[in-house]
Design a protein around this nucleic acid. Structure first.
Length: 429
RNA sequence: GGAGAGGUGGCUGAGUGGUCGAAAGCGACGGAUUGCUAAUCCGUUAUAGGGCAGGUAACUCCCUAUCGAGGGUUCGAAUCCCUCCCUCUCCGCCA
């Protein structure tokens, strides 16, 4: 959610900056500016009436305390004024509430303002490639897709997952399960070494949490919901971990907070029916290790760079070729002020595929989730800045390892960094 | 699932209709005292919104709201009534 002050200070500038995302925000913002002015005027009026009512209440109390008879004409007159005021008060309150509700309903529909550094562009074609790392492997045979490799090696079984659940689920078997577990442990160990405190959060969260990080109300149809219990299956660890400090005022000395968390993630993938129907790329349930940071506003850019570096480190340790791209204004997610994607090389697809998305939300999420901090010597509170990124999507990492480390005979070498976890050199039948 | 208890400021905890945004204690901060520490004393110590109040500003002042949430009674609600949510304890069941 945006700072309402942006609307008052310089609406033209706000329109200009939001429009870089594509679309035209002029109308909504003008509407909001008008609503905001009306709302404040209405609130002032309502407050005045409330003050008068409080005054009457006090006067009655004072007289009665001094022993004035309850039937005294003066007291009676005061009471009558109080009764008269009630109708006005109710009317003013309704008006104020309606305006506030309309404002509160409209404001969260605005996306975050892209940071000035973000390249202007329409869509993913105008994303900026920041750097390449590693070299895609050269095969003297046709590289096999990870799902074929995986099934032939007995590491995964899609048919049985469909039998047990639905399409877009997988069952990992034997060394497949082991490799998944190894990746999770490896990633968490790396992040812990970099100062992230490991969290194992609930996988079901309430509506307030989903709203706090912005999954609701916009993306309700993308999430799995337990209707009987007001609980949602988390689409990412970002939700429970960011909401850990919802409605809290942190002390400035607590910042920055670094958390890493492994969780399963559940997504309905509504509207992606034709895409990535095979393999581990797009499933209803997948594993992810997430990095989440809370910091002071002035540090969020530097923390963002470090977060990206920490995610990259995992790929480097695994010696998987990847590239880093910066999303342009047109491709930026709703809540993000700036975002870098890490894309890993997938030989069978002969291209880079997203494996991590590292976003700086600035105060956008913090405002929604009411995440603040306070410096003892300063008056008032400030919203923290939140950042998060995958470190990494485990299933996609699994896929990348199979494809990049495959041999002609269909076996797969285990990356050096994973050997202590897998305790094997090669995955074979 | 059955029975009961309870939700008050950073924490503990008083408050059952009238200057209660809320006693007291703890903690924290500022000051005094002190060779140092400790102790003692004094003071400060919630958040948010609004203001056509003052200041370049940091900020100050005023009004309003908030004692789990929403509604009701009343001139007036932390306090009475209703609904909902949540937490805890005991019993049962269960990983």
């Amino acid at each position: 959610m945006l700072d309402p002050k942006l609307l008052r200070d310089d609406p033209a500038k706000l329109i200009e900056r939001l429009n870089t995302r594509g679309g035209d925000f002029a109308e909504v913002i003008e509407q909001l500016v008008a609503l905001d002015a009306q709302r404040r005027a209405s609130q002032t009026e309502f407050n005045r009436a409330q003050a008068e009512g409080n005054q009457i209440g006090k006067q009655v109390g004072e007289r009665l305390r001094r022993g004035t008879d309850a039937g005294d004409p003066e007291v009676f007159a005061l009471k009558q004024r109080g009764i008269d005021l009630k109708a006005t008060l109710a009317q003013l309150q309704d008006q104020e509430r309606e305006l506030a509700e309309r404002f509160a309903a409209l404001l969260p529909t605005l996306p975050n303002v892209p940071r000035p550094e973000v390249p202007i562009g329409k869509d993913e074609n105008e994303n900026r490639e920041m750097r390449l790392w590693g070299t895609p492997p050269v095969f003297d045979f046709e590289p096999v897709a990870h799902w074929d490799l995986g099934e032939r090696l007995g590491l995964m079984n899609f048919a049985r997952a469909t039998l047990v659940a639905q399409a877009r689920f997988v069952t990992l078997v034997g060394d497949g399960a082991l490799l998944e577990r190894a990746l999770i442990a490896f990633m968490l160990d790396r992040h812990r070494a970099h100062g992230y405190l490991e969290i194992l959060p609930p996988y079901l969260v309430n509506t307030a949490s989903m709203t706090g990080t912005g999954q609701l109300p916009k993306f309700a149809e993308d999430s799995f919901r337990c209707r009987d219990d007001d609980l949602w299956l988390i689409p990412t660890a970002e939700v429970p971990v960011t909401n850990l400090y919802r409605d809290e005022i942190l002390t400035d000395t607590q910042l920055p907070i670094y958390h890493c968390a492994f969780t399963p993630c559940f997504r309905r993938e509504a509207g992606s029916y034709g895409r990535d129907t095979r393999g581990l790329i797009r499933l209803h349930q997948f594993h992810k290790v997430e990095l989440v940071k809370f910091c002071r506003p002035e540090h969020s850019s530097a923390e963002h760079e470090k977060l990206v570096a920490d995610a990259e480190d995992v790929l480097q340790q695994l010696e998987l070729p990847y590239r880093v791209i910066e999303l342009c204004t047109g491709d930026l997610g709703f809540a993000a002020a700036r975002c870098f994607d890490l894309e890993v090389w997938l030989p069978s697809q002969n291209r880079y595929r997203e494996i991590s998305s590292c976003s700086n939300f600035a105060d956008f999420q913090a405002r929604r989730a009411n995440l603040r901090f306070k410096a003892p010597d300063k008056k008032g509170t400030e919203f923290v800045h939140t950042l998060n990124g995958s470190g990494l999507a485990v299933g996609r990492t699994f896929a990348a390892i199979l494809e990049n480390y495959q041999n002609r005979d269909g076996t797969v070498r285990v990356p050096e960094a994973l050997k202590p976890y897998v305790r094997k050199d090669v995955l074979s039948r």
